[in-house]
Amino acid sequence: MAVRVQEADFDMGAELAALSAGNRRVGALASFVGLVRDMHVDGDGQPVSAMTLEHYPGMTERQLEAIEAEARARWPLEDCLVIHRYGRLEPGDRIVLVACASPHRDAAFEACRFLMDWLKTKAPFWKLEETPEGRRWVEARDSDTAAAERWQG
């Protein structure tokens, strides 16, 4: 069980290998990696040359730990990992890694999706995009709220 908030990049292969190393109960390892896109998806499709991720040190870790604990309460997970970066990132750069190890694939897949959906609406991060027209703060999307609400109750 681990949550890491860091400026540095991460090695996907090494992180996934470490998550199941030495644990023979793990039959499924699912992961999601979020990357910086080179354009804004909503509306105008403006090119994005970079983005800066700001966060709330302290609360970020607490929220991610709470989300991870919730995932472990809902699914039989052997282990899980959340790494989220902050600072200035460019298109193609990795932002976030979520990985879940479980005896069976359904739990690993579902827990991974749950972690991302809740993280997007609860972890205190904010994206500032750089576009040809200047910098702008990314607005929260209703579709992300709807995705998180599917897991309520």
Binding site: G34, L53, H55, Y56, M59, H84, I95, V96, M116, L119, K120, T121, K122, A123, P124, F125, W126, K127, W137, V138, E139, A140, D144
Partner: peptide
């Protein structure tokens, strides 16, 4: 006490 916009991480 922290005041901030809806979050946009991930």
């Amino acid at each position: 006490v922290a005041l901030f916009p809806p979050v946009t991480g991930g």
